[in-house]
Amino acid sequence: MKKKDKLRELTPALIGRYAAVLREQEKAPATVQKYVHDLTLLCGHLGGAALTKAALIGWKEYLTANYAAASVNTMLAAANGLFDFCGWTDLKVKPLKIQKSLFCNADKELTREEYIRLIRAAEQDGNQRLSLVIQTICATGIRVSELRFITAETVQSGRVEINNKGKRRSVFLPDKLRRLLKKYLQTQKRTAGPVFITKMGKPLDRSNIWRDMKALCERAGVAPGKVFPHNLRHLFARIYYTLEKDLSRLADILGHSNVNTTRIYTMESGVVHARQMERMGLVIT
């Protein structure tokens, strides 16, 4: 083993220093948390052994055998980012090559009809807050982490200024949604601050919303694998693109820097594609 390899150790302290740098770079809190999580997994896998290229290739092989390819690549990206930070660029490992998929997984695609059933189930449960959370995310295309920018003040103006991931963008609230949110705020006797808060007065977070949405699955008759906040954003993107066919504009609305990311959001399932081919009527005999 080379002497320099003995000096290359992945420790919780090093992960902490790297996380601090990521925060200084104004990375999203969820991104920092994900990197820390992935690097901690690598630290546990090494079990105190030195960081070597051979050890990292072994880790990559372990990940490949136990995780989806996309998940493997995000973990490798976390490790490579740390190696750049430390100047250990010779340790960087190549990501897996993933063939571009033409269609999304039908088992994960939330349909408009299922979305409506989720809202109806929330209303039947008397959970007006959850019903409006679901509608607000889906009607605007915002990230669940951006819900905190929906305030009583922005409901009045109809325009939300979102600052996320180092980018600012404006999001407009549909008039029908504004009326619903104004009525909700009146019943809550609130005139300022975030619309969606906990009993303690703090903005709802991802875990609150995820848990409440999962509780609707059985009543709404929707598969649990389809029910999570980010899927509402995907549904917004698909419906918008179906109506407008403007990928660049949609990327701006969603806050994407790259339209290739937006293309993923607009993918339909193979079932939809099969129906479209049937309607073409090109089989004659």
Rank of each mutant, 00 (worst) to 15 (best):
F83T: 00
I98G: 06
L76G: 02
D84A: 08
Q99N: 13
C86H: 10
S101R: 14
M75S: 01
N66T: 15
A68C: 09
A69K: 15
V93E: 05
F103M: 01
A68K: 15
A69Y: 11
D84W: 03
C86N: 10
I98L: 14
F83P: 05
A70R: 14
G81H: 07
N73K: 08
M75C: 01
L82A: 01
A68Y: 15
T89A: 03
K100Q: 11
F83M: 08
N73L: 05
K97L: 07
M75T: 01
K97D: 14
T74M: 12
G87C: 10
K100V: 12
L63K: 01
V93C: 07
V93T: 10
D90G: 03
A70E: 13
I98Q: 13
D90L: 04
Q99F: 12
G87W: 10
D84H: 12
T64Q: 12
Q99K: 15
P95V: 07
K92Q: 10
K94M: 07
L63Q: 02
W88Q: 03
T89F: 07
L102P: 05
L102F: 13
G87K: 10
A65V: 00
A69F: 10
C86G: 09
T74L: 13
G81T: 08
C86Y: 09
A70V: 14
A77H: 05
L91G: 04
N66F: 11
L82P: 04
L91P: 02
L63F: 03
V93P: 02
A79G: 08
D90K: 05
K94A: 12
S71R: 09
A77I: 00
N66P: 05
L96S: 11
D84L: 07
S71L: 06
D90C: 04
D90P: 01
A65F: 08
C86K: 14
T74E: 11
D90E: 15
P95D: 08
M75K: 13
A79W: 08
T89K: 11
W88E: 02
M75Q: 06
K92P: 00
T89H: 09
Q99W: 14
L91W: 05
K94P: 01
T74Q: 13
V72H: 05
G87H: 11
A65R: 15
M75Y: 02
L96T: 04
A77Y: 03
L76H: 04
A78N: 08
L102D: 12
A68F: 15
K100T: 09
L102T: 09
N80H: 11
N73H: 07
D84K: 12
N80Q: 09
M75F: 01
A77S: 14
T64Y: 00
F83L: 06
K92S: 00
T64F: 00
Q99H: 14
S101G: 00
Y67E: 12
P95E: 07
N73W: 06
F85K: 09
K94Y: 04
N80P: 04
F83E: 03
K94F: 03
D90H: 08
L82G: 00
M75A: 00
N66R: 14
P95C: 06
Q99R: 15
K94G: 02
A79Q: 08
F85S: 07
F83K: 07
L82T: 03
A78H: 07
P95S: 06
A77W: 00
A77D: 02
Y67W: 14
P95T: 06
G81C: 09
P95I: 06
K94E: 11
I98N: 09
L91Q: 04
A79V: 06
T64I: 00
K100C: 01
P95G: 03
C86P: 12
C86R: 15
A65Q: 13
L82F: 13
